[in-house]
């Protein structure tokens, strides 16, 4: 339903999006994860016809965003990460304005206004001015606005950003409801756990490139069996990393230097205790051995780009070996 082919967007010498290939199937909720500045908003803006790509193509349905933007606009409901509302308009008038802009008939506007306000729990606010609503209510109204013309595709850029925990949960429930309605949803966030709950697939974007893409089941299954451990030693961290990399329950060494090694551990607590004993027996002077709350997206990134991480660790180890020989 949403496809991009080698999509690129360049601002001067900076690549905001690099050769992005995305394929979001119809009826799925696709989570687009990446830290701030990774290129999420740029990608979504291109898909929403707000921006032209430097090269590559992007499609919503069969319509290409650069050659048939009018068709794309009719197919999508777009909610930017930050958006304003008009003063001196009631909630009902606000929705009616966008409904009319999309050519929805007056009778249908009335019917949908009722349905959507009910869906986002704003039916009691129908005659209030939109600028008098709280941020969370405005976000929910924004989502209702996206649905006024009943588009098959929704593009939501960090819909829960800036909301309090309660509003975030409400927003999440509403988006889950959209899946039941058969909508294709492309939703961005920089918080993976938030998306894991409501998405079918997740793609991770880093420095403008899609570095990982998998179904939520794969992500959670792979992430759940692992814990991120930080081991600090007085010296010999690089050599210890080499030992750890060969250990049965260490699935991956994430980072290492002379005093600290971060790793993914797949064993139980008993296995963990045995590992500490093994390291001590091998002569490493352990300072700390602790589980760190690495975020899910970092973990996901490492799990889905093992080759890259392995290359990095190998080069770090090779560098240290060369240094020792010298």
């Amino acid at each position: 339903m949403i496809t991009t082919e080698n999509l690129c967007k360049r601002y001067g010498k900076t690549d905001a999006v690099r050769d992005l290939n995305l394929d979001v199937r119809a009826g799925t909720v696709f989570g687009f994860v990446g830290e701030n500045g990774a290129g999420k908003t740029t990608t979504l803006s291109i898909l929403a016809t707000l921006m032209l790509p430097t090269s590559g193509r992007a499609f919503v349905g069969a319509a290409e965003v650069t050659t048939d933007p009018a068709a794309v606009r009719r197919m999508i409901g777009y909610m930017p990460d930050v958006f304003g509302v008009y003063d001196d308009l009631s909630v009902r008038e606000y929705l009616a304005f966008y409904g009319t802009a999309y050519g929805v008939t007056a009778a249908l506007i009335e019917q949908r206004t009722k349905e959507l306000l009910n869906m986002v729990s704003l039916e009691e606010k129908a005659d209030d001015y939109v600028n008098a609503l709280s941020r969370g209510m405005q976000q929910r109204l924004g989502l209702a606005r996206c649905l006024m013309h009943d588009p098959p595709v929704l593009i939501l850029d960090e819909p829960a950003s800036g909301l309090d925990p309660r509003s975030r949960i409400e927003m999440r429930e509403i988006i889950k409801g959209l899946r039941q309605r058969g909508k294709t949803v492309l939703i961005s966030s920089h918080i993976l756990p938030e998306l894991a709950d409501m998405c079918d697939e997740i793609g991770v974007i880093k420095r403008g490139a899609l570095v990982a893409c998998a179904s939520v089941e794969v992500v959670t299954a792979r992430a759940n069996g692992h814990r991120q451990i930080c081991v600090e030693v007085l010296a010999g961290g690089l050599a210890m990393a080499d030992t750890l990399a060969r250990h049965h329950f260490v699935s991956e060494v994430l980072t290492c230097d002379e005093t600290r090694v971060d790793l993914l551990f797949a064993g139980t607590e008993r296995d963990q205790a045995e590992l500490i004993l093994d390291l001590a027996a091998a002569g490493y002077q352990l300072k700390t051995f602790r589980e760190v709350g690495g975020n899910l997206e970092d973990l996901f990134l490492h799990l889905t780009s093992e080759e890259q991480a392995a290359e990095q660790t190998a080069s770090a180890l090779a560098g240290s070996a060369a240094g020792q020989m010298a």
Binding site: P80, F83, G84, V85, Y86, Y98, A101, Y102, G103, R145
Partner: peptide, 13 residues
């Protein structure tokens, strides 16, 4: 400035 233009530009207007 009110951040309403982005949404307006994604309508068929």
């Amino acid at each position: 400035e009110r951040q309403t233009l982005t949404v307006l530009l994604t309508t068929p207007l």
